[in-house]
């Protein structure tokens, strides 16, 4: 097997507070192969976005993070000086966010904003940059690309703005695109278009896509591999078909059963009792044990380690599919 494009081991992120450091992300391990679509799925507060912000170096000053390994394309990010790392961002790894209208600068035309990206990372002349920006908009599926270069974000719809964000993100042909809930703010027909576009770009350019989402439907349609997070922990990680057919972690199983999609119409939904623990009141032992149907004595006291399980990773003492 070749070396993975992105390799993260034991990533932890903490936020300083009055009551000491609060752990938002704890022991996350990720491997992304070239050209692969990996999805990180979890409910709010599960740490999925924070983990990616740590990779991008976009965390605020109150955050502290550590990792055993963080390698991208053979380069050790932990040993890389900050300036060199900064140069990689946007060029080799780029990111798009949930609210496209909020991520774009409202005071400049979208064409200018794409060209800015090219000016920072490439040697192109200004005419070449203009041409490339137009080509990128076209690649992102925007009709009348030449006219749209002069449009301001408020003159475009949410879907169009997300396409502009995607055009900007792929401007320097990154090897990895991180998309943080890219379609959550969009209507379903537009969501389908954007997901199709992202998949097509992965096929065409061979970049890898790391898709952060809370929507199991989006995961099922888009991802090749899935990593499920709960309260800052990675609980299960495996191929998408295997995860949906035979989830091993009780949380994954319960989450899938709670979807109205997979339940009989008008029946009682098997909801998960309780709520996700907040960052400041995490339980001892396994973080999911207060809500878990398979909980046993050892789950209360001991934290299960993240271990290899079949072709994936699992953090559970009493996984589904094994009788105890």
């Amino acid at each position: 097997m070749s070396t993975p494009l992105l390799e993260i081991e034991d990533l932890c992120v903490g936020f300083a507070s009055e009551r000491g450091t609060l752990r938002a992300v704890d022991g996350v391990c990720l491997h992304v192969e070239k050209g692969e679509i990996l999805s990180i799925v979890g409910e709010s507060g599960s740490g999925k976005s924070v983990a990616m912000l740590a990779l991008m170096g976009l965390l605020g000053a109150e955050a502290t993070w550590s990792a055993k390994t963080m390698r991208f394309d053979g380069i050790d990010l932990l040993a890389l000086p900050p300036q060199a790392r900064r140069r990689m961002l946007g060029k080799e790894i780029s990111m798009i966010f949930q609210e496209p209208s909020a991520s774009l600068n409202p005071c400049f035309p979208v064409g200018y904003q794409i060209e800015e990206m090219l000016a920072a990372h490439t040697q192109l002349s200004s005419t070449e940059r203009r041409e490339r920006a137009e080509e990128l908009l076209r690649q992102a599926g925007i009709p009348d690309a030449r006219q749209r270069l002069k449009a301001f974000p408020h003159q475009l719809s949410g879907g169009m703005n997300q396409r502009v964000m995607i055009a900007m993100a792929i401007a320097c042909s990154p090897k990895l695109l991180i998309a943080d809930e890219p379609t959550t703010a969009l209507d379903v027909t537009i969501q389908a278009q954007i997901l199709n576009l992202l998949r097509a770009l992965v096929d065409e350019t061979g970049m890898a896509l790391l898709l952060i989402t809370h929507d199991m439907g989006v995961v099922a349609e888009t991802a090749e591999r899935v990593s499920v997070m709960y309260a800052g922990h990675q609980v299960e990680s495996r191929k998408v078909e295997a995860l949906f057919d035979a989830p091993r972690h009780p949380y994954t199983k319960a989450l899938l059963e709670a979807l109205p999609d997979r339940a009989p119409a008008h029946g009682h939904l098997p909801a998960i009792p309780g709520t996700v623990p907040g960052i400041d009141n995490r339980p001892n032992g396994c973080l999911f044990h207060p809500r878990c149907s398979r909980m046993q004595e050892d789950c209360r006291a001991l934290e299960p380690p993240l271990l290899e399980d079949g072709d994936g990773l699992l953090r559970c003492f009493h996984p589904c599919g094994t009788e105890s």
Partner: peptide, 27 residues
């Protein structure tokens, strides 16, 4: 029909079958 086809289904096998049924353009 398009609305139903565009709604993501939490089932990888079924999801991949209906991938291309999307709708072009915006409202």
């Amino acid at each position: 029909g398009v609305l139903i086809a565009s709604t993501p289904v939490a089932d990888p096998a079924r999801a991949r079958e209906k991938r291309e049924a999307g709708l072009a353009g915006e409202p």
